[in-house]
Structure formats: C-alpha cells, structure tokens
C-alpha cells in the first residue's frame, strides 16, 4: 500500500515538472539578472559601471533586475511582481516599488512603515525591508519592461 502511495506522489511530481516545460504558454515571461556596481575614477570624476558579479564582498552594491514580457495577444491586468530580498543583502534605496518590512504581509512606502524595536515601534529603515513589490495595472500585448532594485551586501 505504502509503495503505491509513493508511486502516485512521484507521478504527480513528474507531471508537475512536465508543466514547467509548457511555460511558453504563459502569457508573461520573467527573467532575472544581477550585476555588481563598480566605481572607477575617470578624468577626476567617479564613473559607475555594472559588471557580472564574479567577485562580490560585503559592502558591494548589487543591481537586481527582472525583465517581463507579455508575449500574448491579450492585455494582462493586475500585474504584480513580488521579490523577496535575499537575507544577505539590504535594500540600497527606495524606488518605484512598495516595500514590506513584515515578510510580505503588508506593503507600502518605506517612510510610512514601522518595525518593532527593543524600545517600542521605530520608523522602518532600508535594512528592515524584506520584500519589494511592483504593481502595474495592465500590460499591453507584446510589451516588455525591466524592474530594478539595488541592494548592498550586508
């Protein structure tokens, strides 16, 4: 009996995995990328460049991007992209997104959020951010865009 149940479970898993290969049928595709910010001195001014993150140490600034593309022929509505921040980084600056400091339960502007501290509630800081979220009302067919946030390695 037990082995029969296990067999069913593994069949379901196999079907689930097979589902991934049909992702091309999804209306929208997401693609993530990450770069590290390098600052170089050029003619006396500081120039920032984005490089592949081959060497990353605490204090480095990373730029995470998520590209989206509506490859369908239909308008997509209520397009919401949620990005949990990796624990090893802290958000570097606010941007065109809402943030959460309570693991994605509530979202808003950072300045409006508070967190529990040893002495009561205190205003939330960049390093408190756990999730960020972009909300786009609709995506026209065959449109693309890039969502970006930057974070510092703790």
């Amino acid at each position: 009996m037990l082995s029969g149940i296990l067999l069913k479970v593994s069949l379901v898993m196999a079907l689930g995995l097979a589902g991934v290969s049909t992702a091309a049928q999804e209306a929208v595709a997401l693609h993530g990328d990450v770069k590290v910010v390098r600052v170089a001195e050029q003619n006396g001014s500081q120039v920032e460049t984005l490089e592949d993150p081959e060497k990353v140490v605490p204090g480095d600034r990373l730029v995470f991007t998520t590209s989206y593309h509506n490859g369908s022929t239909e308008v997509v509505e209520n397009f919401v992209v949620t990005n949990p921040l990796p624990g090893a980084v802290a958000l570097a600056q606010v941007g065109d997104f809402d943030v959460s400091v309570d693991d994605g339960t509530t979202f808003g502007e950072l300045a409006a959020l508070e967190v529990v501290s040893e002495t009561g509630m205190r205003p939330a800081e960049l390093s408190d951010v756990t999730h960020i979220r972009w909300v786009l009302q609709e995506l026209e067919p065959q449109t693309s865009g890039i969502l970006t946030y930057s974070a510092v390695v703790r």
Partner: peptide
Amino acid sequence: LIENTATASYDSGGGTQ
C-alpha cells in the same frame, strides 16, 4: 549564497496566473 527570485501574478483570460 545570495539567491534572488521574483514572482509575478496577473489576470489574463483564464483567470489569475
């Protein structure tokens, strides 16, 4: 390891995906 994954949800024809 620093790993980053974004998740999108949206409404399209057949409902929320």
